[in-house]
Design a protein around this nucleic acid. Structure first.
Length: 478
RNA sequence: GGUCCCAUCGUCUAGUGGUUAGGACGCUGGCCUCUCACGCCGGAGACAGGAGUUCAACUCUCCUUGGGACUACCA
């Protein structure tokens, strides 16, 4: 095996970054960092109709948000560039020529309609749908005729007859019979390289040592190995990890709900929590715990611990992890991430100073699962956001409830106790004066103070709201 | 249909021939003298089935069953 470690994440910018791809990126990144190797980002944008610059921009920002920094790639450069396939077209053309010269490739003039017909016919006759090599033995004259008729050829690789064998780092020995594989297209009729062709060339030229990717590429590997052999290239080590599944155990897709990094980001999932969860999914760490920061994950990462079977994505567990991360975060760090969510909740953070906001966040962070929940939990601390829920109203309608609230207000107005004593002394006073205790004592005060029946400890709430606001709120009720 | 991959609680997993099959999420009972949450203590919950190999199989082999991926001029 190699003592050098160069791995890559090679997404195509044709949509939002899917958590499955993010996990592949994470595995590659952890592998590189663990082995003090190089993590390369390559953009596979050879599908002109599906690729969009906006997706690429999005992709890079999602990766950065997750903290998956690359050593070579867009915005970063490197000795093996360019790192966008659309900028490497000359390289692919040159390699096509090599194969042509070796007589390992031929032009195919079939139209997509013709190919589709052939495919359907094969399916109907219950045979394997694959290209049968119609254009493989065209004469020079026949080719000239097709060209003259205005047909642009694609180029197909002449699949040799052999058994392809390779060792997968996660799955062990893999064996494929090329008889089941039809001559496949390596360059499309529009001149763009096809996936299997471009990856092989790029992975070799970029000196990739380990290809870590999803199980969905397992059968592609056979085609790619044939190409490595045709070029006389030394293939890298392959490792195919399992896929992320939806509830129904089918490959996780949009119909299963939220699947993109961007969606979780806007729902208020912390990048560290998503990273941690993705690292845990379909894998495990040797540590007996499940909450690990990035350094711990890197230190403990091993492909040997990657599971071979697919893993169902559990949003429940992600949310649990997220809540843990929120609770563990400092108010300063949270505030940074909370900005867009506070804004959305209609709270103008620019008007508030950190000294006031931080203690509130420190209290509220214990009650939220995602950052997006901040609004409904923080409202009780702002007079202009204060509102009475129907449950709270109900509490105040109970026998004696209003009297408790009134007595509390009366105490606050008359006392000259120090601020820190206000709440405990007030409660004691109300208890003695009204005889109320437990639920009957605290719930009316909670309802009056916050307009809600749930929330953090009352003494802490009171300390943050203060005497004046409390009196104002009670007056509004009476 | 063909090729390939996979199989431990509902879910994610530990386990590498001898264990009361462990943990986490979720569910659930109790405790924390206001609620919700947190936390703590407890509970229910799994080796898909069948043959072998072996003194001994969750663990090794084979078959069955079940699930999945691929089968594009997408990656």
């Amino acid at each position: 095996m190699t003592d050098k470690f160069r791995v890559r994440f090679a997404p195509s910018p044709t949509g939002e970054l899917h958590v499955g791809n993010a996990r592949t990126a994470l595995f590659n990144w952890m592998f590189a960092r663990h082995h003090k190797g190089t993590f390369i980002l390559r953009i596979e944008d050879t599908d002109e109709t599906r690729s969009a610059l906006a997706y690429q921009v999005n992709l890079l920002s999602d990766l950065q948000w997750l903290g998956l920094d690359w050593d070579e790639g867009p915005h970063k450069g490197g000795a093996y560039g360019p790192y966008k396939q659309s900028e490497r077209l000359a390289i692919y053309a040159e390699h096509l020529k090599k194969l042509e010269k070796a007589n390992l490739v031929y032009p195919c003039y079939c139209t997509e309609e013709e190919l589709e017909e052939e495919r359907q016919a094969l399916i109907l006759s219950k045979r394997m749908p694959r290209y049968l090599g119609k254009c493989r033995d065209l004469t020079a004259k026949q080719r000239r005729e097709k060209e003259a008729a205005g047909r642009k050829p694609s180029f197909r690789f002449k699949v040799p007859e052999l058994i392809i064998e390779f060792t997968d780092l996660i799955r062990g020995t893999m064996k494929f019979d090329s008889a089941a594989i039809g001559d496949f297209i390596i360059v499309r009729s529009n001149g763009m390289p096809a996936y299997n062709f471009a990856v092989v060339i790029d992975d070799f030229l970029m000196d990739i040592t380990h290809v870590i990717r999803g199980e969905d590429h397992l059968s592609n590997t056979a085609l790619q190995i044939m190409l490595y052999q045709a070029f006389g290239f030394m293939p890298p080590v392959f490792a195919h990890h399992s896929l992320i599944l939806g509830r129904d155990r089918a490959k996780l897709s949009k119909r299963h709900g939220s699947v993109s990094v961007g969606e979780f980001r806007s729902q208020g999932i912390l990048p560290a929590a998503l990273m941690n969860y993705l690292g845990l999914l379909g894998s495990s760490f040797t540590e007996a715990r499940e909450i690990l920061n990035r350094e711990e994950m890197i230190a403990d990462f091993s492909l040997e611990r990657a599971s071979k079977s697919g893993a169902v994505f559990s949003e429940e567990k992600l949310r649990w992890l997220n809540a843990v991360y929120i609770r563990q975060s400092s108010a300063d760090d949270l505030l940074e991430m909370l900005h867009p969510f506070l804004k959305e909740a209609g709270i103008d953070t620019s008007l508030l100073n950190v000294d006031k906001l931080n203690p509130i966040i420190d209290l509220v962070k214990n009650d939220i699962t995602t950052l997006a929940e901040i609004g409904s939990n923080i409202n009780i601390f702002f007079d202009e956001k204060y509102s009475m829920s129907s449950e709270a109203k109900h509490v105040l309608e109970k026998e004696g409830a209003l009297n408790v609230v009134k007595t509390f207000a009366a105490y606050l107005q008359e006392t000259n106790a120090a601020d820190s004593d206000l709440y405990p002394a007030g409660i004691k006073y109300v208890k003695e004066k009204t005889g109320a205790g437990g639920r009957d004592l605290f719930m009316p005060i909670r309802a009056a103070l916050t307009g809600k029946v749930h929330g953090p400890e009352l003494d802490k709430i009171f300390a943050l709201i203060g005497k004046d606001a409390t009196l104002k709120r009670i007056k509004a009720i009476l």
